[in-house]
Design a protein around this nucleic acid. Structure first.
Lengths: 271, 271
DNA sequence: CTTAGTATG
DNA sequence: CATATTAAG
């Protein structure tokens, strides 16, 4: 079994003070993918930066306090890669120091932690999101081809900042012009699943569910009303997706203590 | 009796959440002078902005979140003045919208709340402090003359941001080059007391005490070690100072809850 | 509403 | 070390 968890921690320093450390100590996961770490490694306590029993890779953003992705694995990675430039994809280098992508090879499987830009309609942040999407899809296609040639599977975990279908957010009607549920963003995710032939693992195992949501805004009573969005995914190659036996969102992990506005998304893959 | 209290609240919104409201409800003072309110009236709750039983005057700074002085009085003021420009003192107008001075007339006595700039050696902030001092001494002289002609007494309460003598701060030796205990600042205060002939009321009643200190840095263990400064004063005309019968610093008011880094300085004046 | 940056104290 | 701002989410 390989258990992979992904969670946007919304500031690892704050999350660590509120319950992340206890959550990590209690998880059965073999790999934990973090997004929005929002800290340089040197700003983290040793307990969080390099916890006993884990190998860690931290990919902070050049901009202080922004973005930042990390990967924690029980096994030592065979290879580590920060960013997705250097593979012939135009525009990919722009994001190499943006704290949005880190990838490791474990035996037979490549695991990535992704934090796709969050965007805001009518602003430069939306343009950045679109540039990221334009570069990331060809990267995913190349990654899959290289992995296949190497006999490897791939799973790209993280906060994709796009809800794919109406079932993926509670208030889909009101959000059709909101970044995160724009037609062009949804169409791009469809291309990831259809053209690039990756699989949305949680949806595959829960085809009929509303959600399960993985993010609830801190504004208003979104969490209490379960007015959530499913924007955190495990996007896997079909071979690995076919081995997924269980998937869930740990809404309880953020209940009560609520150490992030996102909840951990976990998938158990059979060997 | 007229009881006057002065306290730098270091952000009235934060102080209100931590114990200021309870403290105000429990005080016997007739007049309360606040400094570093750091909020526009509209940002305060009604309970703090206009508490039952008080008349309030708020003089926020033009710059958001900076400085700001207020006066609370049980009796309605006969006159209110924000800033000290308009009395022929060169340079005084610079500070009219800086949230550093407000004055009211009550029957027979003028009470002011002052927040003198805090300064930092070698920076423009120290220059600003010096410009304020240069303008404020002549204003004090004119105020006294006008009050005398009118048969009024005066007390200027607040955070003067200068410790006068060695007894006024615990670590005076280490702070001889620190803003707040510079020779030129101490000499300026001496001119307030000697040339302008105002009286340092708390020192008059406690001539031999170390302190009583009214401010302890939040850094390190300054409060626990009582490594404080006496920089909050009630500076009164001699007639009023002669009526002062009791003066104390409410160190306990900020102990435990600690709703400010300053403590209230209270004086009881006989009628 | 929350995190984190920065400026001020 | 604490209170504010602002930007981001």
């Amino acid at each position: 079994m390989l258990t992979v968890t992904s969670v946007n921690v919304n500031g690892l320093r704050a999350a660590a003070k509120k319950g992340f450390v206890a959550w990590l100590a209690g998880t059965d996961a073999d790999v934990v993918c973090l997004q929005e770490v929002r800290a340089e490694p040197g700003q983290l306590t040793a307990e969080v930066r390099d916890p006993e029993g884990w190998h860690t890779v931290h990919a902070p953003a050049a901009a202080k306090g922004r973005a930042g992705v990390s990967l924690y694995s029980r096994q030592a990675p065979e290879r580590t890669q920060i960013g997705f430039g250097g593979f012939g994809v135009p525009g990919a280098e722009e994001f190499d120091a943006s704290g949005r992508y880190v990838e490791i090879d474990l035996p037979g499987v490549t695991v990535a932690s992704l934090y796709l830009p969050s965007g805001e309609v009518g602003t430069e942040r939306q343009d950045e999101k679109e540039r990221f999407m334009a570069a990331f899809l060809p990267y995913l296609q190349g990654l899959k081809a290289r992995a296949a040639a190497d006999g490897r599977e791939v799973v790209v975990c993280g906060d994709w900042n796009i809800a794919h279908q109406e079932a993926d957010l509670k208030n889909w009607k009101a959000n059709q012009k909101s970044s995160g549920f724009l037609p062009e963003e949804r169409a791009w995710l469809t291309r990831v699943f259809d053209e690039a032939a990756y699989v949305d693992v949680v949806r595959q195992l829960h085809p009929d569910a509303a959600g399960p949501y993985s993010w609830w805004s801190y504004r208003g009573r979104a969490f209490d009303n379960d007015a959530g969005w499913r924007i955190d995914y495990q996007v896997a190659t079909p071979g690995l997706a076919g081995r997924a036996v269980k998937a869930w969102v740990e809404r309880a992990a953020t209940h009560g203590e609520r150490w992030s506005d996102h909840a951990p998304v976990t998938v158990v893959y059979e060997r």
